[in-house]
Design a protein around this nucleic acid. Structure first.
Lengths: 249, 249
DNA sequence: TAAATTTGTCTATTGATATAGACAACTATA
DNA sequence: TATAGTTGTCTATATCAATAGACAAATTTA
């Protein structure tokens, strides 16, 4: 697991097609820096030998990545790496979307997609310390960096205490700024539970992913400095574009 | 993304077979608690309708999970959930394998698989603040809980400073105890970078996984309280058996 | 016991996946 | 301008994945 990958590290009869596995490996190689940006990939025949598969199988993987906008193929010249490395998304005591991504991207922002009032499900109620079924405001947001989707999050707030936070969010485009209007000057991340799974149809649409992608999922609770829960959230990140950097631990 | 899954959240032509996607969904449902332990799954025909696929496709998914030891099928009776929920693996400032898993499992331990002295690669050298190529000791370990593999880690230590840590590890079975012999009474996790990918052949063997599985990967540096790096590590976790709980943030 | 329910097995068909080989089209270079 | 190297396209074949239908085998329920 030290950078290189054995020629035999491809699994057949796995339910995951070979071209998908090879596309994953190429993405990984780009993220790790084995394949440099703007440089040419090894020729198809070389990749085919390296992974122990037919050239056409490699072509399937490449065409999927061309479709994704990661590679560009030019007849007679070669296949070139377009995409940058994974975005390193910081998670720590004071996780906010805007801070910490400085320097990695030229443009980043959050879009508020929808806001609804709904009864709290069991886990939302537990996270916020409310009774099950109590009214909560749900904000659906999408994080973008350089025009690519890097996160999709749902955040729940006590509807009584934070009435109007949806409007504030629409105005400011920032959770932090919106909470400030309710007298929350500082907040901390109390807990984060992290898991990973294959993208389903909703993930594909929400994060502009290609079928077969992997998503990282975090479920977190934010609290005031004195421990009062204010926000429960579930966030999804495209694993091929984002890694999570756990800081301030 | 709130517990339920739409009937159409299955992707065709994705490079990931339908049976694998459905197996993932069933695992997810078990982890979330939709399918209770020891209880019967819905009958095959019901699952087929729910996911919009043929009964035989559901059967392929089930047989894969039976192979994995997650389900048990009994002719005439039904298919039953054997496995417990995902193990919640804590990661925080004072992450150690032994602490924090209390109560979740009855038995857990680390096995030292191999120890070698090798020249530091670029990233290991950077993590430990050594010159590239300097001698480092590498410990390969495997974490088990209730007889199931829950982690596989490689840890690197400065060979000069920690000469003999391999023997200490073999004796004590604990990194913490081994470091104590070198005067390290306390250490902190400085940074953790987290990503996810499909399991390759090495992961399948190391973690007893079935093809198509997802692994979580963390790359971390541990330091003394005054900031001196002592350990660089890369750990792999089976996403179907483990979730990471980021605590003390 | 009989009927209903559920998993197991078999055959057949279609489409996606993977391999194999040949050659065309394009680019860079000797 | 040749030649070598590279991607693009085509045909053919074999295997895997998915659907469809029928019926057997085992268990539970009426």
């Amino acid at each position: 697991m030290i950078g290189h990958q054995a020629a035999d590290s491809i699994e057949r009869r796995s339910g995951v097609s070979l071209w998908r596995q090879i596309a994953d490996k190429i993405l990984q190689s780009i993220a790790v820096g084995d394949f440099a940006e703007n440089a040419a990939l090894p020729p198809e025949v070389a990749l085919a030998e390296r992974y122990g598969v037919n050239r056409h199988t490699v072509r399937s993987a490449i065409s999927a990545l061309v479709q994704e906008g990661v590679l560009r193929a030019e007849q007679g010249r070669g296949t070139f790496v377009l995409s940058r490395k994974r975005l390193s998304y910081p998670i720590g005591a004071r996780t906010r979307f805007s801070t910490g991504l400085q320097g990695q991207t030229s443009e980043r922002h959050i879009v508020l997609l929808a806001s609804t009032v709904e009864p709290a499900s069991r886990r939302v109620a537990e996270g916020l310390g409310l009774a099950k079924g109590a009214d909560v405001i749900r904000l659906e947001t999408r994080g973008e960096a350089d025009g690519r989707a890097v996160s999709r999050a749902a955040g729940w707030f006590d509807a009584k205490r934070f009435a109007g936070i949806d409007a504030a969010m629409a105005q400011t485009g920032s959770i932090t700024a919106s909470l400030a209007r309710f007298g929350i000057d500082d907040y901390l991340r109390q807990s984060t539970v992290l898991s990973a799974r294959h993208a389903d149809a909703a993930d594909l649409a929400d994060l502009d992913l290609q079928p077969g992608a992997i998503v990282l999922v975090t479920v977190a609770v934010n609290v005031t400095p004195d421990g009062q829960p204010i926000q429960f959230s579930e966030s999804r990140f495209p694993a091929e574009r984002v890694e999570l950097k756990l800081s301030a631990l």
